[in-house]
């Protein structure tokens, strides 16, 4: 990893409380449960995993939309504790959402949409705001800006809408961009265009990006590093090339095997798919959370003890007992299962 990390998460846990009759405690949904990682300045990292593994909750936690129950978030060497820290932090983070149309208030014009973050963050001079808005529109190639300013979201195409969302996310000059499946609702033709835009913005502004996706095929263009998430935990972290060439964790291997290849042979071949479904996040399995579906599970080990992060290569970490011999990176996360905080 290069230099000081811009963002560091340590043992981050975001649990949602389940209540009965609106007040009786019934349990927790452990959407994010002990996640630690670092993100360098200008680095793009992908978080992959299947639906319901806690990716979006991680994104919301990183945006400060949901407060973590435990764990720490450090940003630019500052620990985010009180509300003031989070407010300070929010100005430095941009958010690109999945559904571009839903992400834009339908009753506001493009101009209002882009001015809102400026108004909220204290840019009170209208001429300054207008200049920033025009600049932002040009940066995402919504040109000529004058033509787009009075339009409403429903008058834009899907790709234009998503570019507007990107413009809004980068308007305040953030250091970090959290993109939650930014292209999954777009047409394939528009996808590449939006990804390229994100990539070029990232490079020109030295933005760090957390790119959340379930689609490994888009990760290659975009990110240096990949975090694989399963049932609220990170199971593997590696450089993109390493991960794709040599996935260590059985879950990652299964995930990679599921990427469709444009190979006609596929029609005649049945791929091995891990049996079962992702586990319940309310009562996750004991030990390694993947063990009930894992083809390589070691009885007596995987179903008893939670695996720590083992360093399986340079900058390659996997939380799996198969690599027990390797050096552990960190002690197992601060959060041991069970109990309320």
């Amino acid at each position: 990893m290069r230099g000081d990390p811009l963002l560091a998460a340590r043992g981050l846990a975001t649990w949602y409380e389940l209540r009965r009759w609106g007040f009786l405690h019934q349990g927790w949904v452990r959407a994010v449960d002990g996640v630690s990682f670092q993100l360098a300045e200008g680095e793009a990292v992908a978080v992959v995993g299947e639906s319901g593994c806690g990716k979006s909750t991680l994104a919301k936690t990183l945006l400060g939309l949901v407060r973590p129950l435990r764990g720490e978030v450090w940003f630019e060497g500052r620990r985010l504790g009180g509300a003031d820290d989070w407010r300070w932090y929010r100005r430095r983070v941009g958010y690109v959402q999945q559904d571009p149309y839903g992400a834009l208030p339908p009753f506001m014009s493009v101009r209002r949409i882009l001015e809102e973050p400026l108004v909220v963050n204290g840019v009170s001079s209208p001429s300054k705001r207008r200049a920033r808005v025009v600049e932002a529109l040009e940066a995402v190639q919504l040109v000529p800006p004058e033509e787009f300013l009075p339009r409403f979201p429903h008058m834009l195409s899907g790709g234009q809408q998503q570019r507007l969302v990107v413009a809004r996310a980068t308007l305040l000059g953030p250091r970090l961009l959290v993109a939650d499946e930014p292209v999954s609702m777009l047409d394939a033709s528009v996808r590449a265009e939006v990804l390229q835009l994100l990539r070029s913005l990232q490079q020109s502004h030295r933005l760090s990006v957390v790119y959340i996706t379930h689609d490994l095929s888009t990760v290659r263009h975009f990110c240096e590093r990949v975090l694989v998430m399963y049932a609220g935990k990170l199971v593997e972290q590696a450089q993109v090339t390493d991960l794709l060439r040599e996935p260590k964790h059985p879950y990652t291997q299964a995930l990679l095997a599921a990427i469709p290849d444009p190979d006609p042979e596929n029609a005649r071949r049945l791929r091995p798919v891990p049996p079962g479904e992702p586990p319940s996040l309310v009562r996750p399995p004991e030990g390694c959370r993947f063990h009930p579906r894992c083809p390589a599970a070691i009885p007596g080990v995987c179903d008893r003890r939670e695996p720590p992060d083992f360093e399986v290569g340079a900058g390659h970490v996997a939380a799996c007992w198969l690599y027990e011999g390797a050096r552990t990176v960190t002690a197992a996360p601060a959060v041991e299962g069970g109990g309320s905080p």
Binding site: L65, Y95, Q97, Q98, D99, A103, L104, E116, V120, R168
Partner: peptide, 10 residues
């Protein structure tokens, strides 16, 4: 989502 986005920009 736009409400969430608005919360994100403060």
């Amino acid at each position: 989502p736009y409400v969430e986005a608005a919360r994100a920009y403060g």
